[in-house]
Design a protein around this nucleic acid. Structure first.
Ligand SMILES: [Mn+2]
Ligand SMILES: [Mn+2]
Ligand SMILES: [Zn+2]
Ligand SMILES: [Zn+2]
Lengths: 139, 139
DNA sequence: TTCTACATTATAATAGTTCTAAACTGTTGA
DNA sequence: TCAACAGTTTAGAACTATTATAATGTAGAA
Protein backbone atom coordinates (compact mmCIF):
# COMPACT_ATOMS: atom_id res chain seq x y z
CA UNK A 1 0.00 0.00 0.00
CA UNK A 2 2.47 2.61 -1.12
CA UNK A 3 1.83 5.80 -3.00
CA UNK A 4 3.59 6.99 -6.09
CA UNK A 5 6.19 9.07 -4.33
CA UNK A 6 7.16 6.06 -2.29
CA UNK A 7 7.64 4.06 -5.47
CA UNK A 8 9.66 6.96 -6.81
CA UNK A 9 11.96 6.69 -3.81
CA UNK A 10 12.06 2.92 -4.05
CA UNK A 11 13.09 3.09 -7.68
CA UNK A 12 15.64 5.84 -7.09
CA UNK A 13 17.20 3.91 -4.27
CA UNK A 14 18.14 1.13 -6.63
CA UNK A 15 19.29 3.40 -9.40
CA UNK A 16 16.28 3.18 -11.66
CA UNK A 17 14.63 6.30 -12.98
CA UNK A 18 11.04 6.60 -11.78
CA UNK A 19 9.29 6.66 -15.12
CA UNK A 20 5.53 6.55 -15.28
CA UNK A 21 5.68 3.03 -16.74
CA UNK A 22 7.75 1.73 -13.86
CA UNK A 23 5.53 3.38 -11.28
CA UNK A 24 2.48 1.85 -12.92
CA UNK A 25 4.11 -1.58 -12.81
CA UNK A 26 5.01 -1.04 -9.15
CA UNK A 27 1.38 -0.27 -8.41
CA UNK A 28 0.19 -3.47 -10.02
CA UNK A 29 2.89 -5.56 -8.36
CA UNK A 30 3.21 -4.05 -4.91
CA UNK A 31 0.05 -2.11 -4.10
CA UNK A 32 -1.77 -5.10 -2.70
CA UNK A 33 -1.18 -6.46 0.77
CA UNK A 34 -1.10 -9.93 -0.76
CA UNK A 35 1.80 -11.30 -2.74
CA UNK A 36 1.13 -13.30 -5.87
CA UNK A 37 2.64 -15.31 -8.70
CA UNK A 38 2.44 -14.24 -12.31
CA UNK A 39 3.67 -14.76 -15.82
CA UNK A 40 4.70 -11.85 -18.00
CA UNK A 41 1.56 -12.17 -20.06
CA UNK A 42 -0.69 -12.17 -17.02
CA UNK A 43 1.10 -9.09 -15.72
CA UNK A 44 0.74 -7.32 -19.05
CA UNK A 45 -2.99 -8.05 -18.98
CA UNK A 46 -3.37 -6.71 -15.44
CA UNK A 47 -1.58 -3.55 -16.43
CA UNK A 48 -3.77 -3.05 -19.45
CA UNK A 49 -6.87 -3.67 -17.35
CA UNK A 50 -5.98 -1.19 -14.62
CA UNK A 51 -4.81 1.53 -17.00
CA UNK A 52 -5.94 3.12 -20.18
CA UNK A 53 -2.44 3.82 -21.41
CA UNK A 54 -0.61 0.82 -22.73
CA UNK A 55 2.83 -0.23 -21.66
CA UNK A 56 4.89 -1.94 -24.31
CA UNK A 57 5.58 -5.60 -23.74
CA UNK A 58 9.31 -4.91 -24.05
CA UNK A 59 9.06 -2.51 -21.14
CA UNK A 60 7.24 -5.08 -19.05
CA UNK A 61 10.01 -7.59 -19.72
CA UNK A 62 12.73 -5.02 -19.06
CA UNK A 63 11.16 -3.87 -15.82
CA UNK A 64 10.44 -7.33 -14.47
CA UNK A 65 14.03 -8.33 -15.14
CA UNK A 66 15.34 -5.16 -13.53
CA UNK A 67 13.18 -5.80 -10.45
CA UNK A 68 14.31 -9.40 -10.29
CA UNK A 69 17.95 -8.36 -10.45
CA UNK A 70 17.37 -5.85 -7.65
CA UNK A 71 15.60 -8.43 -5.51
CA UNK A 72 12.07 -7.04 -5.78
CA UNK A 73 10.88 -10.18 -7.51
CA UNK A 74 11.84 -13.83 -7.56
CA UNK A 75 11.64 -16.20 -10.48
CA UNK A 76 10.20 -19.64 -9.72
CA UNK A 77 11.27 -22.53 -11.91
CA UNK A 78 8.22 -24.67 -12.55
CA UNK A 79 8.52 -25.83 -16.10
CA UNK A 80 10.08 -24.61 -19.25
CA UNK A 81 6.94 -23.34 -20.89
CA UNK A 82 7.22 -19.84 -19.50
CA UNK A 83 8.72 -17.89 -16.61
CA UNK A 84 6.82 -17.60 -13.35
CA UNK A 85 7.56 -14.69 -11.07
CA UNK A 86 6.75 -14.12 -7.42
CA UNK A 87 6.18 -10.85 -5.59
CA UNK A 88 6.88 -12.74 -2.36
CA UNK A 89 10.63 -12.35 -2.02
CA UNK A 90 10.87 -13.85 1.44
CA UNK A 91 12.26 -17.32 1.84
CA UNK A 92 9.46 -19.76 1.19
CA UNK A 93 8.48 -22.85 -0.78
CA UNK A 94 5.78 -23.94 -3.21
CA UNK A 95 3.10 -26.40 -4.01
CA UNK A 96 2.52 -26.80 -7.69
CA UNK A 97 -0.92 -28.12 -8.44
CA UNK A 98 -0.49 -30.06 -11.65
CA UNK A 99 -4.22 -30.45 -12.12
CA UNK A 100 -5.01 -26.75 -11.88
CA UNK A 101 -1.58 -25.56 -13.08
CA UNK A 102 -1.51 -23.38 -9.98
CA UNK A 103 1.37 -22.27 -7.82
CA UNK A 104 0.73 -21.94 -4.07
CA UNK A 105 3.05 -20.61 -1.38
CA UNK A 106 4.25 -22.76 1.48
CA UNK A 107 5.33 -20.60 4.36
CA UNK A 108 8.91 -21.22 5.38
CA UNK A 109 7.63 -22.01 8.88
CA UNK A 110 5.61 -24.91 7.48
CA UNK A 111 8.70 -26.70 6.21
CA UNK A 112 11.19 -28.25 8.62
CA UNK A 113 14.65 -26.87 7.88
CA UNK A 114 16.08 -28.75 4.93
CA UNK A 115 19.37 -30.40 5.87
CA UNK A 116 21.75 -31.18 3.02
CA UNK A 117 24.55 -33.44 4.20
CA UNK A 118 26.82 -32.84 1.26
CA UNK A 119 28.56 -29.82 -0.24
CA UNK A 120 30.33 -28.82 -3.41
CA UNK A 121 33.83 -27.58 -2.59
CA UNK A 122 34.38 -23.94 -3.58
CA UNK A 123 30.66 -23.29 -3.98
CA UNK A 124 28.40 -21.51 -1.56
CA UNK A 125 24.68 -22.02 -1.23
CA UNK A 126 22.49 -19.25 -2.60
CA UNK A 127 19.10 -20.79 -1.94
CA UNK A 128 17.37 -24.00 -0.93
CA UNK A 129 13.89 -24.35 -2.30
CA UNK A 130 11.35 -27.10 -2.09
CA UNK A 131 8.82 -27.76 -4.80
CA UNK A 132 5.95 -30.06 -3.88
CA UNK A 133 4.00 -31.26 -6.86
CA UNK A 134 0.42 -32.23 -6.07
CA UNK A 135 -2.53 -33.50 -8.05
CA UNK A 136 -6.18 -34.31 -7.43
CA UNK A 137 -6.74 -37.34 -5.24
CA UNK A 138 -8.15 -40.36 -7.06
CA UNK A 139 -11.93 -40.43 -6.53
CA UNK B 1 24.68 -51.84 -20.13
CA UNK B 2 21.87 -53.45 -22.05
CA UNK B 3 21.94 -54.84 -25.56
CA UNK B 4 19.53 -54.07 -28.33
CA UNK B 5 17.22 -56.99 -27.68
CA UNK B 6 16.88 -55.89 -24.09
CA UNK B 7 15.88 -52.41 -25.31
CA UNK B 8 13.46 -54.09 -27.66
CA UNK B 9 11.84 -55.82 -24.71
CA UNK B 10 11.90 -52.67 -22.63
CA UNK B 11 10.14 -50.73 -25.36
CA UNK B 12 7.62 -53.49 -26.03
CA UNK B 13 6.79 -53.73 -22.35
CA UNK B 14 5.53 -50.17 -22.35
CA UNK B 15 3.70 -50.48 -25.63
CA UNK B 16 6.18 -48.69 -27.86
CA UNK B 17 7.36 -50.28 -31.07
CA UNK B 18 11.08 -50.93 -31.02
CA UNK B 19 12.09 -48.86 -33.99
CA UNK B 20 15.75 -48.39 -34.81
CA UNK B 21 15.52 -44.72 -33.82
CA UNK B 22 14.14 -45.57 -30.39
CA UNK B 23 16.74 -48.25 -29.81
CA UNK B 24 19.48 -45.83 -30.79
CA UNK B 25 18.11 -43.27 -28.33
CA UNK B 26 17.95 -45.96 -25.63
CA UNK B 27 21.60 -46.73 -26.25
CA UNK B 28 22.63 -43.13 -25.83
CA UNK B 29 20.46 -42.66 -22.76
CA UNK B 30 20.76 -45.94 -20.91
CA UNK B 31 23.89 -47.74 -22.07
CA UNK B 32 26.15 -46.04 -19.56
CA UNK B 33 26.36 -47.10 -15.94
CA UNK B 34 26.15 -43.42 -15.02
CA UNK B 35 23.00 -41.36 -15.17
CA UNK B 36 23.14 -37.85 -16.54
CA UNK B 37 21.20 -34.67 -17.26
CA UNK B 38 20.60 -33.33 -20.72
CA UNK B 39 18.70 -30.93 -22.91
CA UNK B 40 17.08 -32.04 -26.13
CA UNK B 41 19.76 -30.32 -28.18
CA UNK B 42 22.57 -31.95 -26.26
CA UNK B 43 20.91 -35.32 -26.73
CA UNK B 44 20.47 -34.74 -30.45
CA UNK B 45 24.19 -33.91 -30.69
CA UNK B 46 25.19 -37.05 -28.81
CA UNK B 47 23.05 -39.14 -31.11
CA UNK B 48 24.56 -37.57 -34.20
CA UNK B 49 28.07 -38.07 -32.81
CA UNK B 50 27.59 -41.75 -32.00
CA UNK B 51 25.80 -42.59 -35.26
CA UNK B 52 26.13 -41.89 -38.93
CA UNK B 53 22.41 -41.99 -39.56
CA UNK B 54 20.55 -38.94 -38.45
CA UNK B 55 17.46 -38.97 -36.28
CA UNK B 56 14.99 -36.19 -36.89
CA UNK B 57 14.69 -33.65 -34.10
CA UNK B 58 10.93 -34.28 -34.02
CA UNK B 59 11.60 -37.93 -33.25
CA UNK B 60 13.98 -37.00 -30.47
CA UNK B 61 11.30 -34.79 -28.93
CA UNK B 62 8.61 -37.43 -29.41
CA UNK B 63 10.73 -40.18 -27.90
CA UNK B 64 11.92 -38.16 -24.94
CA UNK B 65 8.35 -37.22 -24.13
CA UNK B 66 7.20 -40.83 -24.51
CA UNK B 67 9.97 -41.99 -22.18
CA UNK B 68 9.11 -39.28 -19.68
CA UNK B 69 5.47 -40.30 -19.69
CA UNK B 70 6.47 -43.93 -19.14
CA UNK B 71 8.79 -43.00 -16.29
CA UNK B 72 12.09 -43.70 -18.04
CA UNK B 73 13.10 -40.06 -17.75
CA UNK B 74 12.36 -37.21 -15.40
CA UNK B 75 12.11 -33.55 -16.30
CA UNK B 76 13.89 -31.15 -13.95
CA UNK B 77 12.58 -27.60 -13.74
CA UNK B 78 15.58 -25.30 -13.58
CA UNK B 79 14.70 -22.31 -15.65
CA UNK B 80 12.39 -21.50 -18.47
CA UNK B 81 14.98 -21.29 -21.19
CA UNK B 82 14.83 -24.95 -22.07
CA UNK B 83 13.84 -28.31 -20.65
CA UNK B 84 16.34 -30.35 -18.66
CA UNK B 85 15.89 -34.10 -18.46
CA UNK B 86 17.38 -36.68 -16.15
CA UNK B 87 18.10 -40.35 -16.78
CA UNK B 88 18.18 -40.82 -13.02
CA UNK B 89 14.56 -41.60 -12.25
CA UNK B 90 15.10 -42.47 -8.60
CA UNK B 91 14.02 -40.02 -5.95
CA UNK B 92 16.80 -37.49 -5.54
CA UNK B 93 17.55 -33.78 -5.44
CA UNK B 94 19.77 -31.29 -7.20
CA UNK B 95 22.40 -28.67 -6.88
CA UNK B 96 22.28 -26.11 -9.65
CA UNK B 97 25.58 -24.37 -10.11
CA UNK B 98 24.65 -20.94 -11.37
CA UNK B 99 28.24 -20.10 -12.23
CA UNK B 100 28.83 -23.14 -14.42
CA UNK B 101 25.15 -23.61 -15.37
CA UNK B 102 25.56 -27.19 -14.24
CA UNK B 103 23.08 -29.58 -12.65
CA UNK B 104 24.43 -32.03 -10.05
CA UNK B 105 22.60 -34.85 -8.30
CA UNK B 106 22.13 -34.92 -4.55
CA UNK B 107 21.51 -38.44 -3.38
CA UNK B 108 18.25 -38.79 -1.51
CA UNK B 109 20.24 -40.16 1.43
CA UNK B 110 22.12 -36.86 1.68
CA UNK B 111 18.95 -34.90 2.34
CA UNK B 112 17.10 -35.27 5.63
CA UNK B 113 13.47 -36.14 4.90
CA UNK B 114 11.62 -32.96 4.02
CA UNK B 115 8.69 -32.42 6.36
CA UNK B 116 5.86 -30.27 5.08
CA UNK B 117 3.49 -29.32 7.89
CA UNK B 118 0.67 -28.19 5.68
CA UNK B 119 -1.53 -29.82 3.07
CA UNK B 120 -3.96 -28.87 0.35
CA UNK B 121 -7.30 -30.56 0.93
CA UNK B 122 -8.26 -32.93 -1.88
CA UNK B 123 -4.75 -32.99 -3.33
CA UNK B 124 -2.18 -35.71 -2.95
CA UNK B 125 1.56 -35.25 -3.12
CA UNK B 126 3.25 -36.49 -6.27
CA UNK B 127 6.79 -35.43 -5.49
CA UNK B 128 8.88 -33.36 -3.12
CA UNK B 129 12.05 -32.05 -4.67
CA UNK B 130 14.75 -29.79 -3.36
CA UNK B 131 16.74 -27.47 -5.58
CA UNK B 132 19.88 -25.99 -4.04
CA UNK B 133 21.29 -23.12 -6.04
CA UNK B 134 25.01 -22.59 -5.54
CA UNK B 135 27.60 -20.19 -6.93
CA UNK B 136 31.34 -19.68 -6.66
CA UNK B 137 32.52 -18.53 -3.26
CA UNK B 138 33.73 -14.95 -3.17
CA UNK B 139 37.55 -14.96 -3.49
C1' DT C 1 2.43 -61.07 -48.30
C1' DT C 2 -0.79 -57.71 -47.34
C1' DC C 3 -2.91 -54.54 -44.40
C1' DT C 4 -3.10 -51.20 -40.93
C1' DA C 5 -1.96 -48.59 -37.14
C1' DC C 6 1.95 -46.64 -35.53
C1' DA C 7 6.22 -43.99 -36.35
C1' DT C 8 9.48 -40.92 -38.72
C1' DT C 9 10.57 -36.99 -41.19
C1' DA C 10 11.19 -32.33 -43.18
C1' DT C 11 9.22 -28.43 -42.68
C1' DA C 12 5.98 -24.99 -41.13
C1' DA C 13 3.81 -22.90 -37.35
C1' DT C 14 3.70 -21.21 -32.71
C1' DA C 15 4.90 -18.68 -28.72
C1' DG C 16 7.82 -16.81 -25.21
C1' DT C 17 11.54 -13.95 -25.06
C1' DT C 18 15.23 -10.85 -26.59
C1' DC C 19 17.10 -7.53 -29.81
C1' DT C 20 17.13 -3.23 -32.54
C1' DA C 21 17.26 1.30 -33.41
C1' DA C 22 14.56 5.34 -33.47
C1' DA C 23 11.93 8.45 -30.59
C1' DC C 24 11.29 10.14 -26.04
C1' DT C 25 12.21 11.68 -21.12
C1' DG C 26 14.35 12.35 -16.48
C1' DT C 27 18.19 14.43 -14.53
C1' DT C 28 22.19 17.21 -14.29
C1' DG C 29 24.89 21.15 -14.19
C1' DA C 30 26.32 25.31 -16.87
C1' DT D 1 16.44 27.78 -16.95
C1' DC D 2 17.32 24.76 -20.31
C1' DA D 3 20.62 22.30 -23.29
C1' DA D 4 22.83 18.05 -23.24
C1' DC D 5 23.09 13.40 -22.37
C1' DA D 6 22.35 9.05 -20.54
C1' DG D 7 18.72 6.24 -19.58
C1' DT D 8 14.10 4.58 -21.15
C1' DT D 9 10.28 3.32 -24.04
C1' DT D 10 8.51 1.51 -28.08
C1' DA D 11 6.93 -1.20 -32.29
C1' DG D 12 8.33 -4.45 -34.60
C1' DA D 13 11.81 -7.78 -36.16
C1' DA D 14 14.57 -11.56 -34.85
C1' DC D 15 15.51 -15.52 -32.29
C1' DT D 16 14.84 -20.09 -30.40
C1' DA D 17 12.73 -23.94 -28.08
C1' DT D 18 8.98 -26.56 -28.89
C1' DT D 19 4.85 -28.42 -31.20
C1' DA D 20 1.95 -29.32 -35.24
C1' DT D 21 1.36 -31.01 -39.97
C1' DA D 22 0.93 -34.18 -43.36
C1' DA D 23 3.33 -37.06 -46.43
C1' DT D 24 6.14 -41.17 -46.39
C1' DG D 25 7.85 -45.29 -44.24
C1' DT D 26 7.74 -49.43 -41.24
C1' DA D 27 6.61 -53.01 -37.53
C1' DG D 28 3.63 -56.47 -36.39
C1' DA D 29 -0.61 -59.05 -37.08
C1' DA D 30 -3.30 -61.99 -39.82
MN1 LIG E 1 7.11 -29.12 -20.14
MN1 LIG F 1 15.26 -17.02 -17.40
ZN1 LIG G 1 5.66 -17.87 -3.84
ZN1 LIG H 1 19.40 -35.74 -11.34
Amino acid sequence: MLNNSQYTEKLRSIGLRPTKQRIKICEVLFNSNKTFHFTINELAKRITKSTNENISLATVYNTVHAFKKKGYLKEIPINSDQSYFDTNTSHHHHFYDETQKDLIDIDDADVEPVKINTRIPGKKIKSVEVLVKVEDEKP
